[in-house]
Amino acid sequence: MSRPPRTSSTITKKLLVLTSALTLTACSQAPATQEGTQTASAPQTGFPVTVENCGRELTFDRPPSKVVTGYHPSLETLLALGLSDRIAGRTFFGESAFLPGQKEQYDKIPQISETIMLPQKEVMLAQGADFVLDNAMAGFDTAGGYAGVAELDAAGSPVYILGGWCSPEETLQYTLDKTFTDLRNLGKIFGVSERAEKLVGALQGSLADAKKRVEGRTPVKVLATDGGKGPVNAYGGSGVTNQMITAAGGVNVLADVKGDYTEVSVEEVSAAQPEAVLVSDYATLRGEDMPSSPAKAEEAFAIAKNSPAAKEKRYLALPVAAQHPGYRNILAITDIAAFLHPDAFTR
């Protein structure tokens, strides 16, 4: 199977890389059901609430009780907020890199798509969701047979996109603080603001600790790659991965390359002379078009063969789910920082 053609949408590129390894059979899925969901009765204390997302105002008269989530970072963000009982349907997650304690919760939630993408229009509308959470607009592309945001809104299934990834341009404008904004907004929407604030505080503390540990140290020159022998699939100077590298005490050797997930020439990679390599890891998704992380690292080392990273075979497999907006990308910064500056984490 060949790698799907790239489009102008950054998130579409990454999602299509994932879905190319899977078979789309979502149309045969039955609508999800959820026992014990809240009834649409009298308004609850603290409601209605209104939040802004993708230039739209979303108003909720009560907490959602029949939620559908898209690609896994959206699901795990709700799980981190203790909202598993509100989730009526989820997409497939083909990676083994679950966050601690979340695999058991994932297994209990009905799967409505056998890919990481939301199901096609008819199946999606049949869910009867009262809230849809995802971190990409790709799953709402009507030209691709998906239910559009406006269609879902009209059906009573308002859509929220994490990280402000509402357009290709806004994807490039991502900053880490948007994760905290999302958590606070979700706290309001679900009536768990106190819980959300505690999670934000814990994540901010983790981020501050990582930054303090690497403060004053010489930044490590990092190449972030998703493999390729030429051109190379890599991460430029905009977006979530670049932000994570910087926060972890690194400097992106492709910071001058416009874009987030993009293609660069072998000459650019060879000349970059990275000291360390981050490799997007798809874990259980393997095959001709989905090489392993060690194989992708070896591709990078072969191209930048005289670099410090190649000489030391220094790379970190980074779960690709951490390279999307959501709770996990803040956690991953500590892992990257410990990889780049191990001596800063020995005390």
Score class of each variant (00 low, 15 high):
273 Q>R: 15
307 S>Y: 06
259 G>N: 04
264 V>L: 05
238 S>P: 04
273 Q>F: 07
255 A>E: 12
263 E>M: 12
240 V>N: 11
249 G>D: 01
248 A>Q: 03
299 E>L: 04
264 V>Y: 02
228 G>Y: 13
295 A>C: 07
239 G>S: 09
229 K>T: 15
235 Y>T: 07
251 V>P: 02
278 L>H: 04
251 V>H: 00
265 S>F: 13
311 K>H: 08
251 V>Y: 11
317 A>C: 13
293 S>L: 04
236 G>Q: 00
299 E>F: 01
232 V>T: 02
291 P>R: 03
244 M>A: 07
239 G>V: 08
269 V>K: 01
285 L>K: 09
223 L>A: 01
247 A>L: 03
235 Y>E: 01
268 E>K: 09
248 A>T: 03
285 L>Q: 14
306 N>L: 11
219 P>W: 07
308 P>G: 04
231 P>Q: 00
248 A>K: 09
280 S>R: 15
228 G>W: 05
242 N>R: 04
264 V>G: 09
302 A>I: 04
274 P>F: 03
273 Q>E: 15
284 T>V: 11
278 L>M: 02
219 P>F: 08
230 G>T: 12
247 A>P: 05
283 A>L: 06
276 A>N: 11
247 A>W: 01
224 A>M: 07
252 N>L: 00
256 D>G: 14
279 V>C: 04
230 G>A: 15
309 A>N: 05
243 Q>H: 10
230 G>L: 12
218 T>K: 14
278 L>N: 02
220 V>T: 08
265 S>H: 04
315 Y>V: 00
289 D>N: 13
279 V>G: 04
223 L>Q: 05
286 R>M: 11
243 Q>Y: 06
256 D>R: 09
267 E>P: 02
241 T>Y: 10
307 S>F: 05
303 I>M: 06
229 K>V: 15
290 M>R: 12
272 A>G: 03
307 S>N: 02
305 K>D: 13
280 S>E: 14
279 V>A: 08
243 Q>E: 15
287 G>H: 12
315 Y>R: 00
255 A>K: 11
279 V>T: 10
218 T>D: 13
267 E>T: 06
243 Q>S: 15
214 V>Y: 10
257 V>H: 07
312 E>T: 13
241 T>W: 05
296 K>A: 08
308 P>A: 06
312 E>I: 04
309 A>M: 05
271 A>T: 05
